[in-house]
């Protein structure tokens, strides 16, 4: 399973690689990282239908996670990638907007990795 992680914090890459080191080692999960919405879109444009799951931060400079979500849901229909939104602000408005735009799940920072792993197993 290929997961695209979108976050402006660069250390998120190391964090995910460490948290999922067993899964990466076993080849269960393959991570790709993008540091902005724009970067994520250009990756998706080149590697069509590669990413099964997109984990995106909402608060990013430039293109926001919600805008990215909107564009992904518009452009990629078949098969639609699962998009999970992550935000530091667990507020109702962001949640509502994300759901309206078609987000498949909504996580709040700090990410509970055990819960995330459970969710990934179900998605898988």
């Amino acid at each position: 399973m290929k997961i695209l992680v979108v976050d402006d914090e660069h250390d998120v890459k190391t964090l995910f690689e460490q948290r999922f080191r067993k899964e990466i080692k076993s080849g269960e999960i393959d991570f790709v990282f993008a540091y902005s919405g724009e970067e994520a879109l250009s990756y998706l444009a080149i590697h069509k239908h590669e990413a099964v799951l997109i984990l995106s931060d909402i608060n990013m400079p430039g293109m926001s996670g919600l805008e990215l979500l909107r564009q992904i849901k518009q452009k990629y229909h078949e098969p639609p990638p699962v998009v999970m939104m992550i935000t530091a602000y667990g507020d109702a408005e962001n949640y509502k907007t994300a759901k309206e735009l078609g987000a498949d799940d909504f996580l709040t920072k700090p990410v509970d990795f055990i819960a995330l792993k459970e969710k990934l197993k179900i998605t898988n």
Binding site: E9, L15, Q18, R19, Y89, P110
Partner: peptide, 21 residues
């Protein structure tokens, strides 16, 4: 608040990972 939350998340996460490692 936001700016502190992010580094604290990293501190917590990497500490947990280190315990495992």
């Amino acid at each position: 608040a936001h700016e502190i939350q992010n580094p604290l998340n990293f501190v917590n996460n990497f500490s947990e990972i280190n315990t495992e490692l």
